[in-house]
């Protein structure tokens, strides 16, 4: 228990440092908020264009689809704020031998790699995504109950685990291939699956992206909790698969770490 408190203290120091750094480069902070917002607008514009031509896609109407897209954005932005900046630096650390400095520190390597860098800007966009979710629910005349809200937040956390598992697994490839910058493109490409309504998929695609890489559950399950009376089974399934995915990715990271040879002299 004391060990976890120690890690929490370390993490809070990183957060404080990140806030200080962001405030030092305010123009950069606002520029990134605008960039992320532009990508969100792009997704909403796509929904707008599609629903100009149809009333429903796989049983999801326009506002329900916006709740799905915005929920995905909410999870992605929280992930981008707290975990992604550290993970994407791993390929560079491995190539240059900079990982040595992290390995010498008295904390688990996975924790240090994952939390070595933070960005506060995406949290502003997470807030915007939440506002979009709430305004779409208002348009649908839905007022979520307290238990639905609590379950939604819990499932957002589970979604973070899936994002984390996928990116950790992808960046861990850097222990085998020298230049692994394209894994970031891979992360963004694969995560487009999370914006699909699960009902739109079928066959092997649905099986793979539900059980092997549970991307179809990341935004679908939390959104469905708000929009529909969801049964407990898919919620438990999602919680289970997200935890399993994170554990498997962690094992893969440590497997790769055993191959690490310092690049420094």
């Amino acid at each position: 228990m004391l060990y976890f408190i120690h890690l929490l203290k370390l993490w809070l120091i990183q957060v404080r440092y990140a806030i200080t750094r962001e405030l030092a480069f305010r123009a950069n902070f606002f520029a990134w908020v605008i960039v992320e917002l532009a990508w969100f607008v792009l997704q909403l514009a796509f929904v707008g264009v599609v629903y100009q031509h149809v009333d429903s896609v796989a049983g999801w109407n326009r506002y329900e689809m916006i709740v799905l897209v915005a929920t995905n954005q909410l999870i992605q932005q929280i992930f981008t704020a707290f975990l992604m900046p550290g993970l994407v630096k791993l390929p560079d650390l491995v190539r240059t031998g900079g990982l040595d400095f992290l390995l010498l520190k008295p904390a688990p390597p996975q924790f240090l790699v994952s939390t070595s860098s933070l960005e506060i800007g995406p949290l502003a966009n997470a807030g915007i995504a939440l506002i979009v979710v709430l305004s779409s629910l208002h348009s649908l005349a839905i007022t979520p109950t307290l238990s639905a809200t609590f379950t939604y937040l819990l499932l957002v956390l589970a979604g973070l685990f899936v994002h984390y598992a996928l990116l950790l697994a992808l960046v861990s490839f850097t222990f085998w291939i020298v230049q692994a910058e394209s894994v970031l493109l891979g992360y963004y490409s694969i995560f487009q699956v999370a914006r699909l309504p699960r009902e739109a998929t079928r066959g092997w695609f649905r099986v793979i992206f539900t059980f092997a890489i549970p991307l179809l559950l990341v935004a679908n399950v939390p959104a469905s909790v708000l929009l529909r009376n969801m049964k407990i089974t898919p919620i438990l399934l999602f919680l289970g698969t997200s935890l399993s995915a994170a554990l498997l990715a962690s094992l893969f990271f440590y497997l790769g770490l055993r191959r690490y040879q310092s690049a420094s002299s």
């Binding site: 490839f173 291939i177 020298v178 230049q179 692994a180 910058e181 394209s182 894994v183 493109l185 891979g186 490409s189 694969i190």
Partner: peptide, 9 residues
């Protein structure tokens, strides 16, 4: 390998 992954993704 980086290029091949990029093309696949």
């Amino acid at each position: 390998w980086n290029y091949l992954l990029r093309a696949l993704f």
